[in-house]
Amino acid sequence: MMEGLVKVSIDINGKKYTDDVEPRLLLVDFIRDIARLKGTHIGCDTTSCGACTILIDGMSVKSCTMFAVEADGRKIQTVESLATDDKLHPLQEAFWEHHALQCGYCTPGMLMSSTFLLSRNSDPTEEEIREGIAGNICRCTGYINIIKAVKDAAGKINAGKETE
């Protein structure tokens, strides 16, 4: 091992990625460059925009504001975990239907923040959705359609649970 490198092993979307990394390597760069999963975006790189939001052990965090070494041994979900085979996640489908994205740069982060929100609150009010995505900035949509999409997805997920 090169001097100063640290061995890190992170489970991302159910697959283990191991590498020797510089301690200062940002988690988002581990995800994008070592795991080669490009869905997680780097927006501001200053903890402000939320484009790099992922779930770590089920909790949403900004992956530009964690070092990869801090995530050693933990489980991460990125936007790539949402769709299964050819089927979009209900949140992704609702974003599509409600035109909740224009340029799409913030979308991976919006989806992961919404995933965290719905994991804690299956039927959020508009205010709760606004609070849930307060850490994510979108410069295109004005948020209205994102809020509609999250609300719609919550309804569809709940309806799906009832028919099961």
Binding site: T47, G50, T53, M59, S60, V61, K62, T65, M66, S113, F116, L117, E131, G132, A134, G135, N136
Partner: peptide, 9 residues
């Protein structure tokens, strides 16, 4: 405090 991601970490 901050936003949800910041409160989580």
């Amino acid at each position: 405090i901050g936003d949800i991601q910041i409160r989580n970490r």
